[in-house]
Amino acid sequence: MTISFALALHTTTTKLELVIAEINQNSDRNSQIYNIYKQQSWELGRELSVQLHDCLSMFVGDLPWTDFAFLAIATGIGSFTGTRIGVVVARTLGEQLNIPVYGIDCETIITKSQQSSPPMPLSESLLAIAYEQWQASIYPTWQDVLPLYES
């Protein structure tokens, strides 16, 4: 059995939301393919740009970065600075790790969140959408992960 991880970052509001999922790549189709391994949020306000890297480093902890299969990032609409910084961090990590980065717009994330009862946290919805794309072997290019500032 091969275990890998996925990381979702939601940085479009004053709250930083992170979630890591453990992915069982060899499980059969009848069992759940991923489990939430760790989830956390921080209300950072205008400090998101200053504290993102420390929070991310602390959150990932001892997990080897090489064990990540993909990343997901909320691309907006939202805070200009938070969205921009989150997208840059995700794209940089994806490029360095040579793994796909799924950019998902906030409207899609909110719709997915509200489809469950009770609604899923935004970071968990973001991860679920990216996981579906990853399972379907959809691999985005860097242009697919650009921040959205207007609708």
Results as ranks from 00 to 15, higher is better:
E124C: 08
T111G: 02
W42S: 06
G76W: 05
S49L: 01
I104K: 04
I110Y: 00
V50L: 04
Q115P: 02
W65V: 07
F80W: 06
V88A: 15
P100Q: 07
A72Y: 06
N30A: 09
I73M: 12
I85N: 06
S31V: 12
S79D: 14
E17I: 02
V19A: 15
G103M: 11
D67C: 07
D67T: 15
L63M: 12
C55T: 02
A21I: 00
I77N: 05
F59N: 09
R46V: 11
E43N: 08
E47V: 00
I110F: 00
G82H: 06
W65Q: 07
V50D: 06
S27K: 04
N30I: 05
V87I: 10
C106Y: 09
N26C: 02
F68G: 03
G86T: 06
D62V: 10
M58Q: 14
E107K: 10
E95T: 14
F68C: 03
Q39S: 09
T108L: 11
V88N: 13
S113C: 15
D105P: 04
S27C: 15
I110R: 00
N35W: 03
Q39F: 01
F80I: 05
N26Q: 11
K38W: 05
L16C: 09
C106R: 06
I23Y: 00
L56H: 07
F70T: 05
D105Y: 06
